[in-house]
Measured scan of single mutants.
Amino acid sequence: MQRVNMIMAESPGLITICLLGYLLSAECTVFLDHENANKILNRPKRYNSGKLEEFVQGNLERECMEEKCSFEEAREVFENTERTTEFWKQYVDGDQCESNPCLNGGSCKDDINSYECWCPFGFEGKNCELDVTCNIKNGRCEQFCKNSADNKVVCSCTEGYRLAENQKSCEPAVPFPCGRVSVSQTSKLTRAETVFPDVDYVNSTEAETILDNITQSTQSFNDFTRVVGGEDAKPGQFPWQVVLNGKVDAFCGGSIVNEKWIVTAAHCVETGVKITVVAGEHNIEETEHTEQKRNVIRIIPHHNYNAAINKYNHDIALLELDEPLVLNSYVTPICIADKEYTNIFLKFGSGYVSGWGRVFHKGRSALVLQYLRVPLVDRATCLRSTKFTIYNNMFCAGFHEGGRDSCQGDSGGPHVTEVEGTSFLTGIISWGEECAMKGKYGIYTKVSRYVNWIKEKTKLT
């Protein structure tokens, strides 16, 4: 034993070699072989497995989906700052455009905790909710729209109204504003409101030439003092309507412009014939205590009207009353817009006519005020429907199939267009061939041609 100890002390290297040989010859039971080890760690190889990531292109799944990435790591994937920024906006807080917040056709661009709407022409605001041009839906104005110097929408209202708090709607500024039905039992019968379409306001006024200088022999019209197929109006439903009495009662109609003036057809009036105007009328054979009678003290036909040349060209006249009318729910003026808007309103496509005229061709006159909704007829169809001249200051309205029309005794009465609950004068009943005849239409004086003249002559002093 002493000898062994001496050998170990003198030859430590020998001992180490012996131990190493023993270990190498022993069977290893701690580690699995290569094949079995792979069965336990069965993990798919990654895209760049075996390579240094710093030297390969980034992978979106590896960089940002398996674990949260930084902007720089995302930049490695896209290799483009702009594309990385677009991805980053949604990656950080989701897609803010998912709810489609942009209105009126706006395009949404996502941002971090926010979004941006790219608005089409005519709109602005956070969600493109603000109209900035009158060309689109009248700028959301209830009545009139004008573009300011910086191309912003400025709404306005006709006389007797003021802008509401929203700067879009119009509200009454006087007790009985024009064009409004205020009798409670008839307010439910107000005709369907007309909503502004998209309009090209630059070209809204037709490029028409008034044929002022045409000389033409007097034409022989049949029954051209021209509501057939209409309905009984309720008291106060058309408070701007008046009836004219002269040699015979209810020979023509008219509309209240203001307390002192009536507008009617020029062919209705004769110099030297006494005319009485009755406002607030409903049943011409009954006294309903809503009527107001006034005498006409002055007749002003349009300066281009000449019955000797043509009885229905420039067929418009103004009547001055001896005493002002007292405005109330049964006696209310009709609204008159400017030339541009009167023309736009007419193009809405349908209007209402009213009167006490004959209820059928050569038949009896109506006792109760009649009204009828009539569609506008395109000019080409209008011209083809008659052998008589249709001037540019006239328009056609009615039904091709016949059966409904204005008729004798309705002449001078109103053709009105309702705009968001307020009625505007767009025409004056003038003439036609018979009444409600198939293929024939009622012919009306186009008020847009005469609004400046009306307003100039009827100013209240």
Rank of each mutant, 00 (worst) to 15 (best):
S148P: 08
D110F: 08
C252E: 00
T29P: 03
A307D: 06
L319T: 02
E171H: 07
M8D: 12
L23S: 03
F71E: 04
F251T: 07
L346W: 08
V154F: 12
T426K: 00
Y341Q: 14
V227S: 12
E67N: 02
K146I: 12
K455L: 07
C335I: 00
F238A: 05
I284F: 13
I316E: 00
V277D: 00
D131W: 12
Q219K: 12
E73A: 00
T81M: 11
E323S: 12
V447N: 00
N80H: 06
L318E: 00
W118D: 10
T225G: 13
S406L: 15
G363M: 08
Q241D: 04
E259W: 03
T271W: 08
N138C: 03
V92S: 14
E320M: 05
A337H: 01
T461L: 08
K459I: 11
I136P: 11
M65R: 08
F31C: 07
N113A: 13
L460E: 11
G253H: 08
C141V: 00
L24M: 14
N222L: 11
G355Y: 15
S70V: 07
K137Q: 13
I210P: 08
P239M: 01
T158N: 06
A265N: 03
T389D: 10
R449W: 12
N38W: 06
S49A: 06
G363H: 12
P175T: 09
E270L: 13
L369H: 14
W118E: 15
E82A: 11
H34F: 12
R162D: 09
N328D: 08
A317V: 04
T264V: 05
G21E: 07
K347I: 04
G272W: 06
V228N: 07
N343A: 07
N36Q: 12
G105Q: 10
A250Y: 07
Q216I: 06
K260R: 12
Y161P: 01
T276R: 09
K109D: 07
R226N: 15
A317K: 00
T332N: 04
S148C: 06
M65F: 11
I262C: 04
R294N: 02
V451E: 04
V199N: 15
R191T: 11
S182D: 07
W431G: 10
L189Q: 10
Y444D: 01
V77K: 00
R358M: 07
S365I: 09
A366H: 14
G246I: 05
E76F: 00
S11I: 14
N5D: 10
Y305Q: 02
C128R: 03
Y341T: 09
Y161W: 11
V451R: 03
T81I: 11
D200V: 12
I40K: 04
E159C: 04
L383G: 15
L383D: 07
H34S: 08
S169W: 06
H282C: 06
F196T: 10
T445D: 01
K51V: 11
S107C: 06
T271A: 10
S217G: 06
R298L: 04
C28T: 13
V228H: 09
C407L: 07
P175F: 05
N213H: 07
A307P: 12
K438V: 08
K362P: 08
E79N: 06
Y444R: 01
K51H: 14
T215H: 06
E116T: 13
E66K: 06
K137W: 08
D111I: 11
H302M: 02
N328Y: 00
A9F: 14
N113F: 04
G421V: 03
G412D: 03
G398M: 05
I40E: 02
H400Y: 11
S329E: 15
F221D: 14
Q237L: 09
D338P: 12
M394T: 05
I344Y: 15
S255K: 00
L372C: 11
T225N: 15
V277L: 04
L163R: 04
Y201R: 13
C18K: 03
L20Y: 07
E159G: 08
L460D: 14
P120I: 09
T215I: 07
P239Q: 01
E231Y: 06
T133Q: 13
I429S: 15
E259C: 04
N42R: 07
S11V: 14
A397H: 02
T85V: 09
Q2G: 13
G229S: 14
E35N: 13
R46E: 02
C170M: 00
F224C: 06
F388Q: 15
A308T: 14
S169D: 10
V353R: 08
N80Q: 06
E61H: 04
C108S: 02
I284Y: 08
T16P: 09
I334R: 00
R294K: 04
K347H: 09
A266R: 03
I309A: 12
T225E: 12
I390W: 08
C396H: 02
V199K: 11
I299Q: 08
G357V: 15
G398S: 05
R46S: 02
A9E: 11
E98G: 09
Y201F: 14
Y22I: 14
S217D: 11
V183A: 14
H289F: 13
H303F: 07
S411V: 15
K109Y: 07
T133I: 08
P301E: 06
